[in-house]
Design a protein around this nucleic acid. Sequence first.
DNA 1: CGGTTAATTGACCCACTTCAAGCGCGGTGG
DNA 2: CCACCGCGCTTGAAGTGGGTCAATTAACCG
Lengths: 246, 246
Amino acid sequence: MSKPTEDELRPFFATIAARDTISDEEHRALVSAMGDRRVIAAGTDIAREGDRPPVSTLVLSGMTARYSTVEDGGRQITGLHLAGDFVDLHSFPLKIMDHSVASISRCTIAVVPHAELKHITEQFPHLTRVLWLLTLLEGSIHRQWLVAKGRLTADEQMAHLFCEQYVKAGIAGLTEGGRFALPLTQTQLGDALGLSIVHTNRTLQRLRRTRAIEWQDGIVQILDWDMLQELGQFDGSYLHLERVPR
Amino acid sequence: MSKPTEDELRPFFATIAARDTISDEEHRALVSAMGDRRVIAAGTDIAREGDRPPVSTLVLSGMTARYSTVEDGGRQITGLHLAGDFVDLHSFPLKIMDHSVASISRCTIAVVPHAELKHITEQFPHLTRVLWLLTLLEGSIHRQWLVAKGRLTADEQMAHLFCEQYVKAGIAGLTEGGRFALPLTQTQLGDALGLSIVHTNRTLQRLRRTRAIEWQDGIVQILDWDMLQELGQFDGSYLHLERVPR
DNA sequence: CGGTTAATTGACCCACTTCAAGCGCGGTGG
DNA sequence: CCACCGCGCTTGAAGTGGGTCAATTAACCG
């Protein structure tokens, strides 16, 4: 149990820096709002539907997913989160979780008490707008997933997801030579795409056969970014990668 | 051209009041932030993808939709908005529109300059959290649509959408005797559900045959709420209808 | 070395799409 | 006044993308 190091917080500040500049004072305010870091095993629920968490969770390393389940036992993953993502920052204004968040791999997380966030909204209006922005990026990604699920084929949708994860990892500084970690099982990938396992497997085989990507042992290697982007009709502008004063 | 009346703003304040209580001072701050009201014809774009709107738009009457288009010309509606909805409040922190918003029926709208919203974030931290909350409800609804699209059948999904629209209209005070306005064409309904027109039509016929709803001339009449809710596996908790201090 | 979980494959089925056509209605221009 | 058009809705028929069921293999693990 200890505060997260500046190094562990780098992906977080990188995701902010990709959209706006914050002052040293704002930076310090965020750092001092952090509670202790914690390591959690793969497959652990971080927050559950119906919870009223007194803290929000920042991912320092590893991958998490938000998901909901339906009556017949089906599961839909509605978001994938890596280091730098404030997975349930929205529980600060919303108060009650309307879905669950779980670790997918072993993760390091830091929690930020809602009382600290409240203090930020009272003392740092610009920083508040930046945090607000972070929660809205989520919504933007949700919309893109909706478009993909509603109007693209499974092949296009899967390519789109790989594009998105690659760009997101890049922002957080977690790519190297076109490689990044995607420690998902095919079942989980299918739950994110809203596809059956069988079809997920076959779609993935087709995608691999295009030689646009490789994916082994939880590591994706981009082989042909242009092709992948075209396959997925990917246009990253919904990720709002412009440094604009907010 | 004139400021919106208190009467026109009632649905807006009702959507807030369903989640939190705001002070008279906060109420006045919102009212005074409003710019002139405007009437726009059906089928008009209010904001377009790529725009950098200097204002956010509040719907006073009528229905609007947010949508994106894909390469083959397909359109996906990612949200439906009625009186009381702040359709592009998220453009305040995000700055750039990542999708378009259009009027579906003839609408009355009011615009709120971003400068006014900025002022609110500087002077009214609690009100800021409430506005933040409003933008997060959007995300919550997006997630629910994702779950429906990914894991429910077309019949379930359509029933779910009718449930959601009914509850949302109720919050805004726009229902009466189980009736509310839903001035969509079947094509638009299909675009919201991510279905073809033909299948939308047939799914709607099946739904009508259950006698859970009637839908004529843009007016929905709920006939059997329990059945509709069950058909759509609808649980409204994602709409966050709890008055909780934020 | 048995047990479990992830990935894979085959076979069959059905929910949803696409293509095509027809109908009713309101609007419009000659 | 009517012929014509476009749009929204509806229906039929045929095709297909993706689901379900079932079984096999491979890797890991205690």
